[in-house]
Amino acid sequence: MIEVQKLTKKFKEFTAVDEVSFTVGKGGFFGFLGPNGAGKTTTIKVLATLLRPSGGTARVNGFDVVREPAAVRRSIGMVFQDPSLDDRLTARENLQLHAMLYGVARRETGPRILELLELVGLADRWNDLVKKFSGGMKRRLEIARGLLHRPGVLFLDEPTVGLDPQTRRHIWEYIGEIRRTEGATVFLTTHYIEEAEACDRVGIIDHGRIVALDSPAALKATLEADLITVETRNPEDALRIIREELGLDAVLQGDRVIQVPAVNVADGELLPRLAAAVPGLSALEISKPTLEDVFLSLTGRAIREEAADSLEKMRQSRRARARKGR
């Protein structure tokens, strides 16, 4: 359970987190979606008592982060954005030290470590030095460690950043498994759209402010229009034709792609007209709005620079849909 009200964190003059408010219910799955430097990690650090807030209040698991830091720390599990394992120790040793620091009963430690290593698929690697692990394995071990003392709230700061898609999907499955078996409240930060789409509720954060806060479906419902993406060899002419002759709102994205919010794809007229009108047409795609589009419409920017290329975005949204369909 997390309750945050008008939380602010300043570094000297610079405001990294600006009057952020949100609540996450017990057992909830909350995603913080935002670009680099948005203030995600700073928020997590304040909630984990690693930084003192400059203003506002925050309660984690019912405890105030300023007045009851020890109680807060006891009730949270943390997976940092940057690695925090000792890679010259074995997987089990890392977990054992953690168990001691959190006062897990000695009797319980052994079985619990085994259980968690099973959960994250590292049971056969317990005696290996962590420096021999791949990035994904380290991440899984950190997630296991964060859960070891049965925290009420698990913080995951970009748990899949820098990992290849397959490993990311794996970690994602483990997180799902953890939510089922451990029942912990999960607070996750990410700048991957498809990850945010899987959360119960999403806060979109930009420049330290929450610009939208709701379930992914509700957020996307604010953009009622589908998006038509047109790829052409002749974008300047195409843009002019779409705007002037068809009277549609359109923006140029990258050097070959034009995006058109589709008002009435269902009427069956728009697509053939568009296809006929655009010179040098090489691809045409219709997509449902994604959180990326929500972010774009709220801030006028793409979450990640590379995502500004809307072909990539189309691929992403397709992937996200394919996953949901599975």
Partner: peptide
């Protein structure tokens, strides 16, 4: 720089 200290700093100790 390489992390382990954070693990201890966030622990209830």
């Amino acid at each position: 720089e390489f992390g382990f200290l954070k693990e201890v700093l966030v622990a209830p100790v």
